[in-house]
């Protein structure tokens, strides 16, 4: 892979290396902070039932404060401070973006990615418990194809999270159907790229939203076209309510019938974007 050093302007080859950015590591740190706050909150809730040790609760609190101090240090990056409070928002899935704007959405995205990862690593954990493998990395090594799929779909789940927070329901529906192959669509990659730019501070929400809508329209066309399959949200039961895409499709159909033509996908996307759905 070629990387342009923005300070020197020189192109560097990093063919054998995996590039990891400081911002990414700081985002990850916010997920650890989330776990720490959550455990501390839960221990506090249980103190009357199972845990009576007040000195322990004080020590846990001290540990939390020490973590905070260290993570707030300037060289540990800015995202943590922005994200720390928004990750404590319980109903963040829908509300985080509305409540906190982009930092909230990104916090949720980082957090949800962590969650997604832990669930996809379940087979590795189970194999470890049964002594079928010595570690998670060993399991990944022994199951490369599965790992490749897991890592790719896990990475793209960020797209799902952001799309969810931005209200691009069609994308979420498409991904929930469980057709993982759809995630390999160029539109999905494009969305992931624009989210990437947003996360590293070089993109904007409008761009992500538009990309999400294009992907949503593509996915929805596949499942909810005139001759296509009904969307099932993975439950096997067809969805009864009209999706944003259906509504936009209906509007485009009505407009097209006024001029005596058939609705085109572009018209549907335009309708989705202009209505702000």
């Amino acid at each position: 892979m070629e990387i342009v050093n923005k300070t020197t302007g020189q192109t560097e080859q990093t063919s054998k290396k995996v590039v990891v950015h400081r911002n990414t590591a700081d985002l990850l740190l916010s997920t650890v902070a989330g776990a720490m706050y959550a455990v501390s909150t839960r221990v506090e809730q249980k103190k009357d039932k199972f845990i009576h040790s007040i000195p322990f609760l004080r020590k846990l609190d001290t540990k939390l404060k020490a973590f905070n101090r260290k993570a707030e240090r300037s060289e540990w990056g800015g995202p943590y401070k922005k994200l720390r409070d928004s990750i404590k928002n319980g109903t963040r899935t829908i509300l985080a973006a509305q409540l906190f704007g982009i930092p909230g959405a990104i916090a949720m995205c980082a957090y949800k990615t962590g969650e997604k990862l832990y669930s996809v690593l379940k087979p590795a954990y189970e194999a470890k418990q049964k002594n079928e493998t010595t570690s998670i990395l060993q399991y990944i090594k022994d199951h490369k194809n599965e790992a490749r799929f897991t890592l790719t779909s896990g990475s793209l789940s960020i797209a799902n999270c952001i799309a969810n927070s931005l209200g691009a329901q069609a994308v979420v529906d498409g991904i929930r159907v469980g057709k993982a192959s759809l995630l390999a669509l160029p539109e999905a990659t494009h969305l992931a790229e624009s989210i990437g730019r947003l996360v590293i501070g070089k993109g904007n929400t409008k761009e992500v939203r538009n990309d999400a809508l294009v992907l949503g329209a593509t996915v929805a066309t596949y499942f909810a076209g005139d001759t296509g399959m009904p969307m099932t949200r993975g439950s096997g039961k067809p969805i009864h309510e009209k999706s944003d895409f259906d509504k936009a499709k209906l509007e485009a159909k009505q407009k097209a019938s006024e001029v005596g033509s058939k609705p085109k996908l572009n018209d549907i996307i335009t309708s989705l974007i202009s209505s702000g759905r």
């Binding site: 995996v18 590039v19 990891v20 950015h21 911002n23 990414t24 590591a25 985002l27 990850l28 997920t31 650890v32 995205c109 980082a110 990615t113 962590g114 990862l117 832990y118 690593l121 570690s135 998670i136 990395l137 990944i140 890592l151 790719t152 896990g154 990475s155 793209l156 789940s157 960020i158 797209a159 390999a184 160029p186 990659t189 992931a192 790229e193 989210i195 990437g196 730019r197 996360v199 590293i200």
Partner: peptide, 20 residues
């Protein structure tokens, strides 16, 4: 450690300008 490293990789892949 392993979970964090794999998370880090996924987060990097998901948030950078990578094509499929």
């Amino acid at each position: 450690f392993e979970k964090l490293i794999v998370s880090l990789l996924m987060l990097e892949l998901g948030s950078s300008n990578f094509s499929g």
